[in-house]
């Protein structure tokens, strides 16, 4: 008796609890949310790598100066200090530093072995240049060659360009996968809603005949679909979180210093902020997709009624 006195909160006049299963739809949406989390991680990871390469190798130049102790072509001083002076005086150059002999030996060890420094080959000096702005490497090479003829400027541009193109392609694939996942999720919800409409056709016709508006009936379906999609999205996000953390741990060597994930702060730093925002966003997004898809599907279906 008491149950009827106050209208139950989830009063289900259309019988949607049976028509829209609380198992299959959340499971399918959870699978889509999990895939969406992976695609988002791919997107974020590719963007991060691209940025890392651009900011790292892309902002550095290497200048090889043969016969570094010979007299420069400009004022007779040694060629290496003259080139470094030219470089540090160039707008857009943050620093220019000649590599020490042991650093050069380390670089050559793979080819010449541990005794590289004892090999009597005239080695050029290598200047590592860090850029703070845009520098035209061709113009810089011309000016360096004027001071120390035979010098070479390497800007890694070709490799940076290729790696950036690869990163952009990966990002595009991740974006495409995300769009497909959203489309499949919307289709799954639409199919489930249509099945629910078929199963509850008689109840809908009765309620429609009693004066329910399209908005009322669509709202009932949308409320149910929103709840189930949000549950699925939450499940997918919870499943995806440890997988993303494991992937982030694998990717650590490519992205800088290793992080400690045993503490809360370390855990928060283990994934990019974008992903931490995206994970709770998954159930919300799933709920929005569920709401909009159910509303659209039901309203379109109701047009067949007078």
């Amino acid at each position: 008796m008491a149950r009827s006195i106050l209208r139950p909160t989830g009063f289900d006049e259309l019988g949607l609890r049976r028509a829209l299963s609380d198992r299959m739809l959340p499971f399918l949406v959870a699978a889509m949310a999990f895939l969406a989390a992976l695609a988002l991680a791919g997107w974020t990871g590719a963007a991060g790598l691209s940025r890392h390469w651009q900011e790292g190798a892309g902002s550095a130049l290497t200048v090889q100066v043969p016969s570094p102790k010979a007299a420069s072509a400009r004022d007779g001083a040694e060629r290496l200090p003259a080139v470094i002076a030219l470089l540090t005086g160039t707008p857009g150059v943050a620093s220019a530093r000649a590599l020490a002999d042991d650093e050069l030996s380390d670089l050559l060890r793979p080819w010449l072995g541990a005794g590289a420094e004892r090999v009597s080959i005239p080695l050029p000096a290598v200047v590592a240049v860090q850029l703070s702005g845009k520098v035209d490497p061709v113009d810089l090479g011309r000016r360096v060659a004027a001071v120390a003829p035979g010098s070479l400027v390497e800007d890694h541009g070709v490799w940076i360009g290729r790696l950036s193109a690869l990163a952009r392609s990966l990002q595009a694939c991740a974006g495409l996968a995300l769009i497909l996942v959203v489309a499949v999720a919307a289709t799954v919800i639409a199919v489930a809603t249509r099945a629910g409409l078929s199963a509850r056709r008689e109840a809908i016709e009765i309620v429609h005949g009693l004066g329910a508006t399209d908005g009322y009936i669509a709202g009932r379906f949308a409320a149910r679909a929103t709840l189930l999609a949000a549950i699925g999205g939450l499940g997918g996000a919870i499943l995806a979180a440890p997988v993303l953390l494991a992937l982030a741990r694998l990717a650590e060597p490519f992205g800088g210093a290793p992080r400690e994930v045993d503490t809360i702060a370390g855990l928060l730093e283990a994934l990019p902020p974008t992903l931490w925002l995206a994970l709770p966003g998954l159930p919300l997004t799933a709920a929005v997709i569920g709401f909009l898809t159910a509303q659209g599907t039901v309203r379109r279906w109701l047009r067949q009624l007078p």
Binding site: S4, E202, L210, G211
Partner: peptide, 19 residues
């Protein structure tokens, strides 16, 4: 044309709730 999953009370109350 009663809704089979609703009680007699809820079936009769339905038009009022819709209104």
């Amino acid at each position: 044309r009663l809704l089979p999953h609703l009680t007699a009370f809820d079936n009769v109350a339905l038009p009022l709730r819709l209104a």
